[in-house]
Amino acid sequence: MKKKSTPELIVHEKLTLQLYVSGMSPKSMEAIENIKRLCDEHLKEAFELEIIDIYKNPEVASQQQIVFSPSLIKSLPLPKKTLVGNFSDSEKVIKGLGIAFKK
């Protein structure tokens, strides 16, 4: 079991994240930048990020019925969370993923 990674966040287990993007769309490119920064700054080693391009792999929709881009899905630990947008607000993203800040 992974212990907390940064002074700021309480993370008990490694996060498994999928970021869905659509090729060269401006929001996709922003989302990638923002999520990477968020993970590097707050999650350090406690995450696994997979970036999937729905243009290159449209069949991901078959598993989820509909996949928006850009969207971030936390598949582990449960419960599963889905966030949509370009993720410019780190705090909102962290809260949306259900991670608490250490007080």
Partner: peptide, 20 residues
């Protein structure tokens, strides 16, 4: 998010075929 225009694209599964 959709209302705020933060979505660029989506992939849908219709009739077992994925459309973007």
């Amino acid at each position: 998010a959709i209302k705020a225009g933060e979505v660029d694209a989506f992939a849908v599964n219709s009739n077992d075929k994925a459309e973007v």
